[in-house]
Nucleic acid binder design. Structure first.
Lengths: 205, 205
DNA sequence: AATAAATTCTATAGAGCTATAGAAATATTG
DNA sequence: CAATATTTCTATAGCTCTATAGAATTTATT
């Protein structure tokens, strides 16, 4: 067993989480085998169990890694003093950027978290719900400031934004050629300006 | 082996496809086992192979079942003479309704089709691409008629609509309490009216 | 260099799952 | 009813995968 002071352990464990993320993203939790994960980081199958006590634990760590930092971003955005449009744009940017930076872990969180044991899953679910709630509040505040129309269902709107980001995130992970900033720009544009031809110019950028 | 004239076979095979859809939707293709599928339709594991030659074939049939009919709907919508708004609303309605009617098969198509062998997958992919293309054309036509703003990226818009419908479809499948028509209405409203407060009233319903 | 600690390896038990074969049961037809 | 066809069952070969144990190797410490 490792001891404090041996920092190779933490480095390798992080590598294991990233390797697991990549393999789970490609083959799914049940489709992936521990051999794939181990080989991706250049060790043998059995050695992986020096870093995880089970395959489930690997999934659990990947999922946590996947969201912890875009949840943190939302905390910052939500607390800041910006216009509704700026907050919405920041949310989209942070969410989509996470798909690139976090090495598939966010995709794994979305697609495979339901295979976690109940206890772990509900802890992660809290984080996810909190994220959605904060986005919902951004919409509520937008209503108060007059940026968002009265008739908007804010719960629904938050869900829709997250769904749209995840759909695009999927494509971002699958296709490394895809220009992240182009996608961010288009998503933001769509959310702020909508599909429809409008004659007033108040909310264009 | 069965023979023509024995219509129990086709009835049971359809039941097998629905059972497989439910199980694959819940546990994923690799997480599901043929025992689960068989038991759900009240037969034993081995008997399932009277209807499928492999687990892969079951997946293949489920995926096909999942899309064939909403792809067909799009064909009708695309060919019809309606306003942009009406076509968009019809698309959302058809897409989301499929999630309820088709017994989880559409969800399986979205989440598990990448585990199909290449040959099958590319045949299904064609259907999916065709669907997106037709939606894209609806947007292009909308531009020509002035309903959609010039600056809209139609390819992107189509992708976004599909992504949003799929995100909501997931929730519809997961939660049978969720009111389908409420979701359809809200999605349509969001797509047509957008998030933002507008001063002109041209495109409200 | 000798000793101890940390990391990786090999080998495997034990479990679960797919797909098949052939028997048994059920339904259909003459 | 007897003969035939269809559907389901039981049993299992053969494979893959997880997780563990203990040996071997590498890295750090005295």
């Amino acid at each position: 067993m490792h001891k404090a002071g041996a920092e190779k352990y933490t480095r390798q464990r992080q590598a294991a989480i990233r390797a697991a993320a990549a393999v789970f993203a490609e083959k799914g939790f049940h489709g992936a085998c521990t051999k794939d994960i181990a080989e991706r980081m250049g060790i043998k199958q059995g050695s992986l169990y020096y870093y995880f006590k089970s395959k489930q634990e690997a999934l659990s760590e990947v999922c946590l890694f996947g969201i912890q930092d875009y949840v943190q971003h939302m905390e910052d955005i939500s607390g800041s003093e910006q216009s509704f449009e700026a907050k919405l744009a920041a949310t989209v940017t942070s969410h989509l950027s996470s798909y690139r930076e976090r090495n598939e872990a966010l995709k794994v969180y979305n697609d495979e978290r339901l295979y976690l044991p109940e206890a772990k899953r509900s802890r992660l679910k809290e984080l996810g719900s909190h994220y959605r709630q904060q986005l919902e509040e951004i919409f509520e505040d937008g209503k108060k400031s007059g940026a968002v129309r009265e008739s908007m269902d804010c719960h629904f709107a938050a869900q829709a934004v997250i769904g749209m980001c995840n759909a695009w995130g999927d494509l971002i992970v699958r296709d490394p050629e895809l220009d992240l900033f182009r996608v961010i720009h288009k998503c933001t544009d769509l959310l702020i300006n909508g599909f429809i031809q409008q004659t007033n110019t108040t909310n264009r950028n």
